[in-house]
């Protein structure tokens, strides 16, 4: 028998899985006749895309932490809130930039606040991983208990520092208001949110697919033990991903804060329901699935909020159930050992 038999056996390469990518456009087109007015539909769709990008940014960190480290981090909500609140520290020093009639100064203020939010959340994530999460790796029940406990403590600390009432986070002057495209009113900040979301998504794809760190993360999501057996210290990778995930939560938090122009200590927790739905819909550990899931969740919430406001949150539960009935491990499940 020839030893080359198996070498000529061509693997059955499945075609690229484009179907989940079609879901968001199909959902949008299906909503058009229900909404009626094309202008209203376009406004709702763009609002959904902007909201989806912000949720994606928050959820992408969580899905990587979940996928790579197998950690159920309910305290992710705290990093969302902390990021948003820490941006308010610059409201005093940079208020002249925020209110200036200059796009450059306004963009500079936004950039600095976003950077500060990410940095503070990253630092908090580093400390949280070292002190709270590290002792409970591999123990899900303990993870739930300590991360929920961490979330409660963090919320109380934020309340103690900034007070229980709403804190304003005004948008820089240049990003306020709307632009009219025909009859469609488009909020400027939503365009900014879509642009930032796309940049973050592209950067994540680039890192995951074109760098050694990205290869390690993808391999670690699948089989951390084998990554260690190849000589890589998975703990360092864990810390790096936890810190990056926390920074993304902070970034998403401050973007959401600008979107609402108001912060509350409970904002992260309120968003966490959507964030967890996105992570589950997308497939644990899948950044691409997280992106598609975030768009679906946000579009569904916007259309449902317009068509039947009382069903807005329930609509996302229905969406999650429908997707899990179709693909029980999410849209783009990541192979696990």
């Amino acid at each position: 028998m020839s030893a080359s038999l198996d070498t000529t056996l061509k693997p059955v390469v499945p075609p690229p899985d484009w179907l989940p990518l079609a879901l968001a456009p199909v959902l949008a087109l299906a909503a058009l006749p229900l909404v009626g007015s094309p202008a209203t539909w376009a406004t709702l769709t763009l609002a959904g895309l902007a909201m989806g990008m912000m949720i994606f940014i928050m959820a992408s960190g969580l899905t990587l932490i979940f996928g790579l480290m197998d950690v159920l981090n309910f305290a992710h909500a705290a990093f969302i809130t902390l990021g948003a609140y820490s941006a308010t520290l610059l409201l005093g020093p940079r208020s002249d930039w925020l209110g200036a009639d200059s796009l450059v100064l306004n963009a500079g203020a936004l950039l600095v606040m976003v950077a500060l939010a990410s940095a503070v959340a990253a630092a908090a994530g580093f400390a949280f991983e070292r002190v709270i999460v590290r002792p409970v790796y591999g123990r899900h029940l303990h993870q739930i208990l300590v991360t929920v406990g961490g979330l409660i403590v963090a919320q109380q600390l934020i309340t103690a520092a900034w007070g229980p009432v709403q804190v304003a986070l005004p948008l820089p002057a240049s990003f306020r208001g709307i632009v009219l495209v025909g009859e469609v009113a488009v909020e400027r900040y939503r365009l900014v949110a879509v642009a930032i979301g796309l940049v973050v998504f592209a950067a994540m794809l680039l890192v995951l697919n074109r760098t050694r760190i990205g290869l390690l993360i993808r391999a670690g999501v699948e089989n951390p033990e084998m990554v260690e057996a190849l000589g890589y210290r998975i703990r360092r990778l864990f810390v790096g991903v936890f810190v990056a995930g926390s920074a993304l939560a902070g970034l998403g938090g401050v973007m959401w804060g600008f979107y609402r122009e108001a912060l509350t200590p409970g904002m992260g927790l309120e968003l966490t329901v959507l964030v967890f739905i996105v992570v589950i819909i997308g497939g644990l550990g899948s950044v691409g699935g997280c992106f598609v899931g975030a768009l679906l969740v946000a579009l569904t919430a916007n259309y449902a909020g317009f068509l039947a406001p009382k069903l807005a949150l329930g609509s996302n539960i229905v969406l999650m159930v429908a997707i899990l009935l179709w693909r029980s491990r999410g849209l783009y499940p990541v192979a696990k050992r």
């Binding site: 050694r212 290869l215 390690l216 993808r218 391999a219 999501v221 699948e222 089989n223 033990e225 084998m226 260690e228 057996a229 190849l230 000589g231 890589y232 210290r233 998975i234 990541v334 192979a335 050992r337």
Partner: peptide, 30 residues
């Protein structure tokens, strides 16, 4: 384990444990 791998021990597990999401090239590069 990483120190042992860096010290010159390689491991081929019973389950093969190739990284299925990575290409052949990426598995070897890693």
């Amino acid at each position: 384990t990483p120190d042992l791998a860096r010290g010159g021990i390689a491991y081929v597990p019973e389950t093969m444990s190739v990284f299925s999401d990575l290409t052949v090239r990426e598995n070897l590069v890693l």
